[in-house]
Design a binder for these strands. Structure first.
Length: 112
DNA sequence: GCAATGACTTGGT
DNA sequence: CACCAAGCCATTG
């Protein structure tokens, strides 16, 4: 058997652990790819987190838009960039003039 | 098995 | 602040 949602160890797969962490980001807060990797027990796997979020099933209820890069900037481009920014604004998050988010204010579990 | 591919990160210019 | 170079690492073909 090869259940994609579970390792043979019985421990949830990385995608699953990432889903859990993302789902727990409070409204009005944002976090980074690196922080999610750390909270999911996969330090140094920020890139994998990005890949996982890019493959979220359509219609997912996860607040994927509350995830930005370590610079407090949106990593998406084009129309996707616009969508994420709108979602964040609707969440009450304010951007700096340079289109960045102040993680000191809105960051969630960004520091150890 | 090796090379290419990223919704990343850090450090330097 | 903008841009670039390296480092990083699981997933893909």
């Amino acid at each position: 058997m090869n259940n994609p949602d579970q390792t043979e160890n019985g421990e949830p797969s990385l995608p699953n652990r990432v889903y859990t962490v993302v789902a727990s980001i409070p409204e009005g807060k944002v976090t980074t790819y690196g922080a999610i990797a750390r909270l999911a027990g996969a330090i140094g796997h920020a890139r994998q987190v990005g890949t996982i979020l890019s493959r979220l099933p359509q219609g997912s209820k996860l607040p994927w838009f509350r995830v930005v890069n370590s610079q407090g900037k949106i990593s998406l481009t084009g129309p996707d960039y616009i969508r994420q920014k709108q979602a964040l604004l609707a969440d009450g998050i304010r951007f700096t003039p340079a289109d960045r988010i102040n993680l000191k204010i809105y960051g969630w579990m960004t520091q150890p």
